[in-house]
Design a binder for these strands. Structure first.
Lengths: 145, 145
DNA sequence: CGCGCAGGTTGGAAAACCAGACCCACAAGG
DNA sequence: CCTTGTGGGTCTGGTTTTCCAACCTGCGCG
């Protein structure tokens, strides 16, 4: 029925409430359950469920860092790390159009400057805007014009 | 309690289920209620609620395109159009890490080539990766090191 | 008149979410 | 030995969302 689409597919994995915020914390280096609970504001049971799912789908790895008593940390896998760009893009949009006042979070790039993320066409390296893009294939089928 | 953060703020606006898919349809040019219902697969009541909220927060505009009988279309505002980059980034991530097989949706850029969206640092124009980025300010406070 | 269509609204059942209490294993302090 | 504290959760009961299907409304059409 619904359109076949990678946005929908992605949301199956990371679209539930709190999932992206949990990932944000892990990518920031907060790897422990209680830290993630605190910084996200999610309730503990929901967070436990989300983390389990993220481990299942391979975005996080649950590592035991202490045997007695058993203690665990969540580490991002490579696929988990690749979500960084999605989070940055979302953050940039939030900074520009939702958050009032200055950006609460600021990143620095290894080039030495403040990181302002920009989405560009990999070919011509121009910034992408809706008006410059055209869908040529949708749900696996060519777009007739 | 929770960390002050534009990702969280953004998700307040577009983080609910079906919201992003509804926006995807509108940005693709499907502006009518029934089309959006069909293509997203959301139930009608939820979609009505989502669209109302999107109009309220200024991402969509509800335009009457016929007086008798009254008929409406949803158009993206400028802010709504600016979400295109977020959706593209999410789509790219889904293509790479979730969707099995070839990308269901393909875009072309005005430069004439297939649009593969990339996130770069606005200053040095290098592709951004987690390892090259460092948070220097979090929740409004400097990161001590 | 009866039908169809766009754009919703309504009601009831199912699923998700929430706060807070509880649990378990162990360590440290008294 | 007994108490307290900590990390990493689970359990409970109640509230809120979401889902599905059916219904409603205004009007054009045959």
């Amino acid at each position: 029925m619904a359109r076949e689409c990678s946005i929908a597919n992605a949301l199956e994995v990371i679209g539930e409430r709190w999932t992206l915020l949990a990932l944000r914390e892990v990518l920031l280096g907060n790897r422990r359950f209680d830290q993630i609970v605190q910084q996200t504001g999610a309730s503990r049971d929901i967070l436990a469920t989300r983390l389990r799912k993220l481990v299942e789908v391979g975005l996080l790895e649950r590592r035991q860092y202490e045997m007695h008593p058993p203690r665990y940390e969540y580490h991002p896998t490579e696929v988990g790390q690749s979500l960084h760009t999605v989070l940055l893009t979302l953050m940039a949009w939030g900074n520009d159009h939702v958050t009032a006042g200055p950006p609460p979070t600021v990143w620095e790039h290894s080039c030495g400057h403040e990181l302002r993320p920009q989405v560009v066409c990999a070919h011509c390296r121009q910034e992408v805007e809706l008006g410059d893009s055209r869908a040529v294939r949708l749900g696996g089928r060519p777009v007739e014009r």
